[in-house]
């Protein structure tokens, strides 16, 4: 027996011509947007649709950059502290590992998920989708990946971690010699890339790609 709910009916062309605001349920007629333009809801001001100035090729290049930078940010030490000639440095994994062994497993799991697992998943999923979107095709698993990306939403926190590293450096600077390591520069670059991707409206991928005939 098929337990999945039946599909709602939709008239493809009529549905394409309308937009419904996700914050107040107001129905809008869709206008074609020029590069860099943003459509806002007349009633509540929410962003309805954003036309990115970047093509799928550019985004794919940026995602590959993000993957490289992310690997460096994760593998390389972030800062080194010095005291009486002793030196200690820490990578992201040291941070997660010490929280696990220091009776704060909840924090270790949170950090592992929001700073490593989810960002990495996001990068791979976006890369996979964009690889196919370059030629207007839908990648295998398109539907599942798009829904998962939507659900991941705010659960990637690399940018918060960068600010946290900054605060830690200032705090540690009072008592120790602090030396920035390559990891912190990789994180700085990652933060720039995150800012670029924050302005990308992923839902447009639904319209810009077509399902291939089976």
């Amino acid at each position: 027996m098929d337990l999945s709910p039946p599909d709602a009916t939709t008239d493809a062309t009529a549905a394409q011509a309308l937009l419904i605001c996700e914050h107040c349920d107001t129905v809008h007629r869709r206008c074609p947007l020029a590069k860099g333009e943003v459509a806002e809801c007349a009633r509540c001001g929410a962003v309805l649709e954003r036309c990115r100035g970047l093509g799928a090729n550019t985004l794919l290049a940026l995602i590959l950059t993000a993957l490289l930078v992310f690997a460096q940010a994760t593998l390389w030490p972030i800062v080194t502290l010095g005291l009486n000639g002793q030196h200690v440095d820490a990578t992201l994994w040291d941070v997660i590992h010490t929280m696990w062994t220091d009776h704060s497993q909840v924090v270790a799991v949170l950090a592992a998920l929001t700073l490593f697992v989810f960002p990495l998943c996001k990068i791979f999923m976006l890369g996979w989708l964009l690889l196919y979107a370059r030629s207007g095709r839908r990648a295998p698993g398109f539907r599942l990946l798009m829904v998962t990306l939507h659900r991941l939403g705010p659960w990637t926190m690399s940018e918060v971690f960068v600010l946290g590293a900054l605060v830690s450096i200032v705090k540690a600077h009072l008592y120790f010699d602090v030396q920035p390591d390559p990891g912190i520069y990789a994180y700085a670059a990652l933060m720039l890339l995150i800012t670029i991707f924050a302005g990308v409206d992923l839902t447009r991928l639904w319209d810009e790609t077509r399902e291939e005939a089976p």
Partner: peptide, 26 residues
Amino acid sequence: WSMLDVFVVALLTALVRFGYFSLVEP
């Protein structure tokens, strides 16, 4: 962004490990 303080504690714990001289614990 409230996770900031959590990450600060985690980072300092991982960094400040100088045994008797200086140690940070969550």
